[in-house]
Amino acid sequence: MTENKSNEIKIKTVNLSFYYNRLHVLKDISVEFPERSISAIVGPSGQGKSTFLMIFNRLWETIPDARMEGEAFIRLKNKWVNIYDRSISLPELRRSAGMVFQTPNPLPMSIFKNISFPLKLSGVIEKQAVDEKVEFALKQAFLWEEVKDRLSDDARSLSGGQQQRLCIARALTLDPEILLLDEPTSFLDAGSGQIIEDLLLSLKESCTILLISHYMDQIRRIADRVMELSGDTSNNS
């Protein structure tokens, strides 16, 4: 947790507020997150932690009766982008900001197809490129050795920890600049959680990671900075 202070800012929000119907969940939040770091987001449940993550890939827009005020910026390919600008292509934004959910959510298809799914979405069809990408992503997610002989198996036959790493690998296939993780270890046993923590530490060289976590010891082990979302104020420390 040392040299990161000199890193440039990657993500920032300005006067961000968020409402579900009339419920005011995020109040006037202005924060900055430096690149190549792991920032942990903590706070009691119901304070909009998951919502806060979804601000950065605009996934909340599929939720009815949700409304946002304020602005959010990400430095994509070294250019500051207002991600709520009209000219932004939503699929492209979501490809540069990968997200992993609390419950592993492999799609009902084979391991290989799961990993290559985002490539299919973005129109990469060349067989060799896809194969390479899949292998690279699985290696990056520490999963390659375990699944290389069974790539055509149903992804749901994997263990919970493997499924979660599969989801991380899937998010990594498109070389995202940002990784948004919503309590990725909360449903896993300690061993699987440890592997994922190591994985995140290795990923922080290439990605900016925002991580929601309930575990203080986990945060102490891997987070470079902590942001607390609570009732009225949000503190940076």
């Binding site: 996934l59 959910f101 979405l121 973005s122 899937r170 498109l174």
Partner: peptide
């Protein structure tokens, strides 16, 4: 939400 989070239209 799975596919949109991966950039699906």
């Amino acid at each position: 939400l799975t596919a949109p989070a991966l950039g699906a239209t």
